[in-house]
Amino acid sequence: MTAKLIRNTGLGGALVIGLGSILGTGAYVSVGLSASIAGSLLVWAIVIAAFTALCNGLSSAQLAAAHPVSGGTYEYGYHFLNPLSGRIAGWLFIIAKSASAATAALAVAWYISVTMGLSAWIVNLIAVGLLILLTIFVLSGVRRTNWLNIVLVLISLAGLTAFIIATFSAQKTTNSATVSVDSLSLFHAAALMFVAFTGYGRIATMGEEITEPRRNIPKAVVLTLAVVSAIYIAVGLAILHLGGIASFEQSNFNIANLISDPSWRWLVVLGGVVAMSGVVLNLVLGVSRVVLAMGRRGDLPQSLAHLSNDNQSAPAATWATFAVMAIIALLGGIESAWTLSAFTVLVYYGITNIAALKVSSEQRFIPKWVSVIGLISCFGLVVLAALA
């Protein structure tokens, strides 16, 4: 009999995992990147991404409640569609989320290197060191990781609050270097912003460890998306208050650069570093669970399916996850890694919506049209962003 992970994460823990997975690269990097593309339409890009995420989140919640196991859409593809769909979803998830983790780790490394005046070549090594540290935290067990998540989320929120207060306290400005915006740019920005919402997927991929999954998973997803949407819109309005962002540079991407007051800027920098570290932590956790599921089915070496003696962690799968993320962090850059994540994760959630349409009426608690809209939104954003 296959060993199962222990269900010891309740609604509060699931909500913290969702927030910890999102409030980092999204608020501190992706909003600024999207602002450089969408210009004055930034808030609309956030709203489009949020609506797409809500449909996909509800489809994920539907699937996780009907089939509450670790592995997310990899398992749902197998269970509700066919083995090929499951395998494709599994590899898409590993690529997309490993790229997101590498982006967050590289962003933290850039913060540290610029602040301490270190050479640019050391950035990739700092990123790998961060990945090693947070992999060890994940291996300590989900329950202890949740306590760390609470601390990370609180500090992240403090940094964002500082940014919003400092921004709206400053005089409103109009940036002379305006961004040329059309409808394709809007959807391109929305596609990049969508990645910033997808931390709710970590809740679904941990379906095997969440108590009362049919009740807690949907609630955690909706609450997470509601809180994050409000925060992103507030950050977006703050950026526009200061005239927006005219361009995006890999070493100058953080929203703290928009603040002139050094004291406020340091708070935002601290919040950004902590928040993005939280994103890496949760991505290591989430991706390792998909690697675990693929090992169980034999789509990856079965040695990756071994659990710890207390059944609270998956060491082999977790270290394999670290290896993939470390390779991307060593070889890639922030902008390219984020773009790779955006396109692969949209296709991944397209498969999620197709699988959700196959859930039986007895197990269904969301109407099918939600998944249909989610499917159209995912593939629509892929096409429109590619044309931009």
Rank of each mutant, 00 (worst) to 15 (best):
N8T: 15
G10R: 03
L15Q: 12
I22H: 04
V29F: 14
L33E: 01
A35P: 09
I37P: 09
V43Y: 03
V47C: 08
N56T: 15
G57Q: 00
L58F: 09
A66M: 07
H67K: 15
H67F: 12
G72E: 13
T73F: 11
H79I: 02
A107D: 03
I112C: 06
S113F: 01
T115D: 03
L118W: 13
A120I: 14
N124L: 07
I136G: 06
A162T: 12
A162G: 05
S169R: 14
S176Q: 15
S185G: 13
L192W: 14
M193F: 10
V195K: 00
V195W: 09
Y200S: 00
T205F: 09
M206T: 12
M206C: 10
N216G: 04
A220Y: 11
V221A: 04
T224P: 10
Y232G: 07
G236T: 05
L237S: 08
A246S: 15
N254C: 04
V269D: 09
V273F: 03
S277R: 00
V279M: 07
R289N: 11
G298V: 04
L300T: 00
N311V: 03
S313P: 13
A317Y: 00
T318G: 02
I334N: 03
E335I: 07
S336L: 05
W338Y: 14
L340C: 06
V347Q: 11
G350S: 09
G350D: 07
T352R: 10
L357H: 01
K358M: 14
E362I: 11
R364C: 10
S371D: 02
C378Y: 09
L381D: 00
A385V: 07
L387S: 14
A388Q: 12
